[in-house]
Design a protein around this nucleic acid. Sequence first.
DNA 1: TTTATATATGATAAAAATTTCATATAACGA
DNA 2: TCGTTATATGAAATTTTTATCATATATAAA
Lengths: 107, 107
Amino acid sequence: MKNATDLFFDAFANKNRFNILMQLRNKEMCAGDLQKTLGVEQTNLSHDLKCLLNCKFISVRKEGRKRVYKINNETNELVDEVAKHVKNYETYLKKCGILKEEKNGRI
Amino acid sequence: MKNATDLFFDAFANKNRFNILMQLRNKEMCAGDLQKTLGVEQTNLSHDLKCLLNCKFISVRKEGRKRVYKINNETNELVDEVAKHVKNYETYLKKCGILKEEKNGRI
DNA sequence: TTTATATATGATAAAAATTTCATATAACGA
DNA sequence: TCGTTATATGAAATTTTTATCATATATAAA
């Protein structure tokens, strides 16, 4: 059985899911808007939103036939910390050479 | 070409590499001791240490025929933040259901 | 200067993650 | 209640990541 750290990174460090968390920083959005902004498949987005909901990184409320998603404060802060670290180490990350070169990419 | 966030998570969210960073929190260790403590293959450990070095998450100094590794302060702090978040969300992560069930696991 | 220990490298094999596909459900408006 | 929009589900296919293997280098001790 996986431990909590494994599960955490599976949820949080996933390209599409982290992109969602980045979008939701400091603002709420419905699934349709996330889809347009991120340019992802509807079905993938839905899978990913469910995962983030299950982990309680985000919450949701209904508004007509739309679902409006919101990131929680602690997760918002952690996303900020990570973004800061990425910025500080960007130069070295790009020169690493061991990390793979191709992938669809986060925003 | 991958962006910095992709590269960051490739380096940081990797099971073996994060285990190394956890071990190096607040203490220096040589490769051999990391190997014993983590119970990993020598060759995998070496690949992972090189990656962490390239990204400047850790540094190294020679001591006889050993290499002694040290985590940097910023990365140490980020590891702490993540560990805290994992602890806070552990219950939900384990009930997620979407995240995969089997893997070798972080420590 | 040979042997043993400590660590590194690169290619391929194995395992795991992500995407796609086919389809389902839920809410609203005509 | 029928069609349309918005979102969800599960399984299979594809892609990516991680582990293994064979071997190399570097330092020190005998």
